[in-house]
C-alpha cells in the first residue's frame, strides 16, 4: 500500500515536470531555433557544453526538440484517452443498463473494434483522413475504447444486480435516476484509473503512428523525432543522442502514468 503510494507520488511528480516543460517550452524556445532553414549549428554534433544532447541531422538542438515534443505527445495522449474512455463509458453503461437488443447491437460493435488490430485500423484511418493532430487523436480514440466499454459494462452489471438498485426502482426511480445516482458514481473511480492507463497507451500509439510517418508533419513530437532519426540514418551515424532522448522520454512519461494509475487503483478499490 505505502509502496504504491510512494511510487504513485513519484509518477505524479514526473508528470508535473513533464506538463511544466510542455507548457513552458513553446513560450521560451524561439521558432528560429527549431526551424531547419535558420539553424546555424553543424549537424550530428555529439552532446557537449553548447548542445546538451547534441544536434540532429539539420543542426537543431535535440534537447530543445525533446522539450518541444512533450506538448504534442501529452496533448495527443490526454485527448485521445479522454475520447476513448468517454466513448467506452457511454457504450458500457448503456449496454449494461438497458440490456436486450440495444446491448446486443452495441456489444457486436464493441467486438468488431476489439478484434480489429487497433494499430492497423489507426494507420488506415490516418491515411484516409486529412493529416493533422485531430486525425491522430481521432484514430487513437476510435480504436482504443472497446476495452473500457467491456470493463464499464461488467461493473455496471454488478452494480445493477445489487439490491439497492432494486430498492431505487421500487421507490419509482427511472433510468436517469438509477444511472445518475447509483451506476455512474460507482463506475467513475474505475474509469479514472482506466483513463490514466489509457493515456499511457495513447502516447505509445501516437509515437508509433508518428514513427511510421503518419503523424502531423508540421509538429514536433517524440515519435516524429524517432521517425526523423530513423529516416536520416542516426544509427549509421552512431548518433545515439538523437534516438535515445525521445525514446527515454516516452518510456518515463508512460511509466509515470502507469504508476499514478496503479496508485489510484489501490486508493479507489474498496478495502475489505
Amino acid at each position: 500500500m505505502s509502496r504504491f503510494n510512494r511510487s504513485g507520488v513519484a509518477g505524479a511528480a514526473i508528470l508535473a515536470v513533464a506538463a511544466l516543460v510542455a507548457v513552458i517550452a513553446p513560450l521560451v524556445i524561439s521558432a528560429d531555433e527549431l526551424d531547419v532553414t535558420r539553424v546555424t549549428a553543424a549537424p550530428w554534433q555529439s552532446p557537449g557544453a553548447e548542445f546538451w544532447l547534441g544536434t540532429d541531422h539539420t543542426g537543431r538542438s535535440v534537447a530543445l526538440l525533446v522539450a518541444q515534443g512533450a506538448g504534442t505527445s501529452l496533448f495527443v495522449g490526454l485527448t485521445a484517452a479522454v475520447l476513448a474512455v468517454g466513448i467506452g463509458t457511454l457504450v458500457g453503461i448503456v449496454s449494461g443498463h438497458f440490456g436486450g437488443l440495444v446491448a446486443g447491437a452495441l456489444l457486436r460493435v464493441t467486438d468488431f473494434f476489439l478484434v480489429l488490430p487497433a494499430l492497423v485500423l489507426a494507420i488506415a484511418l490516418s491515411t484516409v483522413l486529412p493529416r493533422g493532430l485531430g486525425t491522430i487523436v481521432l484514430a487513437i480514440g476510435l480504436t482504443s475504447w472497446p476495452s473500457t466499454a467491456r470493463m464499464v459494462r461488467a461493473q455496471t452489471l454488478t452494480i445493477e444486480a445489487r439490491p439497492f438498485v432494486e430498492r431505487a426502482r421500487a421507490l419509482g426511480g427511472g433510468h436517469v435516476h438509477v444511472i445518475g445516482r447509483h451506476v455512474l458514481p460507482s463506475v467513475v473511480p474505475l474509469v479514472l484509473v482506466n483513463a490514466t492507463l489509457a493515456v499511457a497507451t495513447a502516447i505509445v500509439a501516437e509515437s508509433t503512428l508518428a514513427f511510421l510517418g503518419l503523424g502531423d508533419p508540421t509538429r514536433i513530437s517524440w515519435g516524429a523525432m524517432l521517425h526523423q532519426a530513423q529516416l536520416h540514418g542516426a544509427v549509421p551515424q552512431r548518433a545515439w543522442w538523437f534516438l535515445l532522448p525521445p525514446g527515454v522520454a516516452i518510456v518515463v512519461v508512460v511509466l509515470a502514468f502507469t504508476l499514478v494509475g496503479r496508485a489510484l487503483e489501490a486508493v479507489v478499490t474498496p478495502k475489505r
Binding site: 445489487r162 439490491p163 439497492f164 432494486e166 430498492r167 445516482r181 447509483h182
Partner: peptide, 9 residues
C-alpha cells in the same frame, strides 16, 4: 429487502 447492508448504497 432482506439484507439491509446490500439494500443501501
Amino acid at each position: 429487502l432482506q439484507d439491509p447492508a446490500s439494500a443501501l448504497n
